[in-house]
Amino acid sequence: MMRLPSFRYRAPRTVREAAEMLADTSADTMLVAGGTDLLPNMKRRQQVPATLIGLRNVAELRGISNGEGLTVGAAVTLAALLRNTDVRAGYTALWQAAAQVATPPLRNMGTIGGNLCLDTRCNYYDQNYEWRKAIDFCMKKDGAICWVAPSSSRCLAVSSADTVPALLALGATITLTSADGIRQIPVASLYRNDGIDYLTRAPEEIVTAVHLPRLDGWRSAYWKLRRRGAFDFPVLGVAAAARLTADGLVESARIVLGAIASSPLDAQSAAGGLVGQRLTDDVIARAADDAAQPARPMDNTDFTLHWRKRVIRDFVNYALREIRGDDMRDVRRRVARQMLM
């Protein structure tokens, strides 16, 4: 059986207490909420924190509140998020993304904050200690080289969180709390295109909440590419959101791609091209081509990279057609193995 390494465990009851603990302790301290990302990494010795600060007793992180939009505590589980009727009704892309994360029991455990901070993934990195030793490790942990692209000076591990492209497309912001205070930033600002240093969060900061703006008149969708109907991380995620006028003109739009770089990729020019247009087949096809163009997937996930690159436009197409109002249930059933409606 795979065993966790030894660690010291601390269980604060409030955010303030957690922030103070974090400020106090050394660099090899990590926060743990659902544990579904960190604990496998610890068992594989990819992450070996000396101290864990467990957030499960921090009640204030588990609320969902209405206001100007929706505020979701970082320790709200994905399952709880899915049960929330406001999320389901008003933030379709987020709901569809959360519904496709991992598996039902893992969604009962994993939290929205954990998904936001999900470690970047790579087939050369997400392996047991023994396997990584056999390739002499990689620069993300214990080694010097990136085996995906040996000439690369940076790590190319992949941003693989389903909810992140959805939150970006929905214009969400997050709250970061430390012993020194709090700050609120757009979700996009949390990420950096670097497989190792993929979060801009300071070591003493805790992601404490996610805020979704009011989105009157917006429609959104999330399409995920993976081999199976469950378990698998995305090897491509497409989130799209658009506000349409009553007569079907696009007033505003966002298209965000996940799982093709170390950070989510905001396809601004593709989305910008939709503004002022109707979502005709041609307009959608052009936007899909534009969105796919800058993507440079690497050979470190499931499926061949050429094929992943090639189908980006199809998945953008699916998302935009769903926003247009097409009945995509059959395609959903074949691609996602679920209806997600």
């Binding site: 396997w131 109907g229 469950a230 499931d302 193995r337």
Partner: peptide, 26 residues
């Protein structure tokens, strides 16, 4: 791995996550 850099020859993904076996949805 690239032979000029390494002698490694490893199982591509010895895990249940990356060795894909059909789920109830598949």
């Amino acid at each position: 791995l690239p032979p000029r850099l390494s002698n490694a020859l490893v199982h591509k993904y010895p895990s249940m996550l990356e060795y894909k076996s059909p789920t109830s949805l598949d």
